[in-house]
Structure formats: structure tokens, C-alpha cells
Design a binder for these strands. Sequence first.
DNA 1: TATAAAGTAAACCGATCTGTGTACTTGAGT
DNA 2: ACTCAAGTACACAGATCGGTTTACTTTATA
Lengths: 188, 188
Amino acid sequence: MRKYPQLLTTALDLFHQQGFHATGVDQLAAEAGLTKKTLYRYFATKEALIDATLQLRDDDFMAALDAFVAATPLPQRPQAYLGYLAQWFAQPDFCGCLFINAAAEYPQADDAIHRQAAAHKTRLRNWLQQCCAAAGLAEPVLRAQQLFLLGEGLTVAAQVSGMDTALLQVAQLQVAAWPYQDEAVPAS
Amino acid sequence: MRKYPQLLTTALDLFHQQGFHATGVDQLAAEAGLTKKTLYRYFATKEALIDATLQLRDDDFMAALDAFVAATPLPQRPQAYLGYLAQWFAQPDFCGCLFINAAAEYPQADDAIHRQAAAHKTRLRNWLQQCCAAAGLAEPVLRAQQLFLLGEGLTVAAQVSGMDTALLQVAQLQVAAWPYQDEAVPAS
DNA sequence: TATAAAGTAAACCGATCTGTGTACTTGAGT
DNA sequence: ACTCAAGTACACAGATCGGTTTACTTTATA
């Protein structure tokens, strides 16, 4: 079935580096080392290829996040999420979040591609909530929302303006100050 | 000089609703009520039109932000920034931040359009820093960075997943807790 | 070894893209 | 009234778009 992993990884690269509309089917086939005929045997339309690419990216991203964070003990994992983002931004070919880009190129909320991007963010938010709860943070739902906000802000800032170490540190310091369940809340 | 405001406002709408690549010059001219010939008299290329559109959006956005926030007293203006974002997200035709979208469609950091998007975000960050300093917040530089992160996170979340009142409230509560210069810092 | 699926190479299709050229009309200023 | 810039209407150019077709070759298997 999954006979052409080269095609999907090529698609991931090109969609990231050039955008979806700017990447033609001819280029995709050529750089993946196959013909358009073969490509269209596996994917009925370009949109189907985009769908599959986003699905792969969703799985890869969440798996890599899981793997990265698994190396740190439970209580520090919310901060490790920011560490994961940091090493992602530092990659030389970082071109932003593919799902944010997809939502930008397909702005209508009822578009299938846009909805797929939203679904990924929902998955990420659920993961963050699990993460904050498992870490033993006080008010884990609130913290997960804050962590999501910080991560999205950092991601889009890194995409538009480049990696900003100071901004990252601001986020990291904030998360480091979050109390755990068994700690007393500071007096108001 | 600025003979065709209709063209730029049409371009703003279409680029927002459809994206840059997905919006053709023919459609732009037709919906603005002029001929391609005339359009190309004022803008040498489509990219020049995009540049002008982004410039207009930059000015309009910052001016509207200034006007909105001017109605609230200085100390509450950082929170008013979030209020401005909230009413923006609530507009029925909200399709995300045009500059984030531009950076997504032109992912290469050295692209002129991408750089223009980055320049807008720099301008916004400077505005936020002024805002936090004028409000009398303690650590205004830090607060401006946090406020920027929150705003970008909220914006991209609203764009991808739709307006989220809970998320907005999380941000608003956080900002409301920021101390002012003349307040004592809580004991560690 | 015969067969059928699946691959390559490359022409082809109609539509659309950015951008230009031609011919005609309008309208303001001298 | 004459002029000239700027507008309209619209065909056109060359490239590229997503997608298909034709003809030939490889390859695995019964």
C-alpha cells in the first residue's frame, strides 16, 4: 500500500518550503522521482495528496513530541513541550507550522483542509491537557490552555520573525512558576 | 495619486478570504470595477499590489487599534488590547491575520512579502511595549513580550479553530493579574 | 513462459495564470 | 474645438496549472 514514502516526504518538504498553491503536481512528482501518472494512481487529486500529507505530519509531529518529552520526568513535561518547540524552531529549514500554513492558504473554515488543520490543533490541545494533568500541576486545564497559547504564539512568531530566544525564555520562566497540586497557593 | 481606493479594499477582502495565490488579477480587477490595463498602470506586478495592500492593512490595523484603545484609561490599555482582538475575532468575516497568512504563503524569510509581514509584527511589538510602559506596569518589557505572545496565540487559534471564549478569558485573567510599578511584589 | 499489473516517458487537454497590445471612448484643460 | 492622458472592452501571449491519454517497458507471479 504505502509504496511511495518518498512522495509524501517530498510533499511535506515542498509544501513547507513553498506553500501549497505554489507547489505544483509536476514538481512534486519530479522531485519524488516518479511520474504524474503514478502519483495519480495513488491520489485522485492534489487535494487528496495534501490530506495525506497533513495526516502524516500530524502523526509524525505528535509522535516526535511524545518521544522528545518522554525523556523528561512527568512533572517537567509541560516545560519540555517548550523545549521541543525550541529545538524545532532551531532547525535550519524551519518554515512554520504546516497546519497554520494550511489554515492560512485555505482560509474558509468549512474547507476540508482547514478542518484538518483545526483537528490537529484539537489533538495537540488534548495532549497538552493530559500532559499538564499527569505533571501534577494545579489547575491543569487552565495551564494546558495557557501552554497552548504560549506555544502557538511562539510558533507563529518564529515563523514570521524568526526564532527569538528572549521570547522563548519569557515563556519558559512563566511555565516554570506554575504551582503543583500539592503546593500551597500563595496568599492573595 | 491614490485614485483607486476601491482596488486596495477589494484586494484586502479577497486576499483575506481566499489567500494570495488563490486570488487572480482578473478577479481583483473585475470586483474592483476596473480593467486589468488600469490596474497595471498603477501597480507594475501583482506583487506590488500585494505590497501596497499589506502596507494599507498595516496602517489601518494599527490606527484602529490606537483608536479602540484610546477609549480606555492608560492603566487598562494592555487588557484593552485583548478586547480589541476579541471584537476583531468576532467579526463574521474574520479570516485571520493577513500578515501571518502572508508569511505562510511566502514562507522564505528573505521574500519581500514575508519581510513586510515581519515588519508589521515588529511595529506591533513596539506598540505593545509603549502600551505596557505607559500603563505603569512593572517590568513593562517582559509584559509586552507576554502580551504579544498571548495575542499571537489567540489570533492563530481563532483563525484555525474559530473564536474560543474560554481561551480569551484565560488570557484576560492573566493580564489582569499583572502588578503595577508602585505595587509591592509578592513575597517569593 | 504467458499474463496482467504497474511503472516510465512524454505528449496532450482545457482552464487559468500574470501580463500586454489594440482599438475605441471619455473627459478635463488650454 | 483640439489635444492628450486615462479610461473601457477585449483579444492575445506564453507559461503553468491540475489532470488524462497513449505507447512502451519493467516486473512479479501463476
